[in-house]
């Protein structure tokens, strides 16, 4: 059952993810009108992931896949309306879910393992930690991109034309037939 506590936690998670997405998005100078969309998508995606991990007990990469899939679907819907390529707001809204901490912890773990002069830290657990962080980074990254790309692949033809202002469908069909 969904309790109020959980609901509040999910909504708060979404709000903070939206703030994070806006900030990380403006580094890559998105179109003005895409920024609010980024915030909405990031809130939905990250909130969903929080719910899946904390309530349904999914692991982080599977949860990321579903979250990214929802972002991908919504981004196609928005792209059709404001005539931007879907990736212009789909990518920034993924940014709060990028496994940055896992990524640099992998490298930190490697450095620590290598520079340990006493040999006391060179344990199987250290290797397991490095592997776990590294694989999580890789799998979450692939899950995020696959999840976002899946709706775009499913509606392949349409998504390429999101930035097209007027669509002379008939003329195109005639041209393709020639």
């Amino acid at each position: 059952m969904m309790t109020t506590d959980l609901l509040i936690a999910v909504i708060l998670d979404g709000i903070f993810a939206a703030v994070a997405a806006i900030g990380f998005a403006v580094i890559s100078n998105p179109p003005r009108k895409a920024i609010p969309v980024c915030a909405i998508l990031a809130a939905v995606g990250h909130g969903l992931r929080y719910f899946l991990i904390n309530h349904l007990g999914l692991d982080i990469s599977t949860a990321s896949l579903f979250a990214a899939f929802s972002i991908g679907l919504l981004s196609l819907w928005f792209a059709d309306r404001i005539h931007c390529p879907a990736e212009v707001f789909a990518f920034p809204s993924l940014l709060p879910m990028i496994p940055g901490m896992f990524a640099y912890k992998t490298i930190l773990g490697l450095m620590k393992f290598l520079t340990d002069t006493t040999g006391a830290g060179q344990t199987p657990e250290a290797i397991a930690g490095i592997l776990r962080n590294g694989l999580t980074t890789l799998f979450v990254l692939f899950a995020l991109v696959l999840g976002v790309a899946l709706p775009i692949l499913l509606f392949h033809k349409r998504s390429y034309m999101m930035t097209r202002l007027f669509r002379p469908e008939r003329r195109n069909r005639a041209r393709a037939a020639q």
Binding site: D13, F16, A17, V19, A20, A21, I22, G23, F24, V26, I27, H46, P96
Partner: peptide, 12 residues
């Protein structure tokens, strides 16, 4: 905005 974003990220 980036500073706010990273602070929000810390909360996440």
């Amino acid at each position: 905005l980036v500073a706010c974003a990273n602070a929000a990220f810390c909360r996440l």
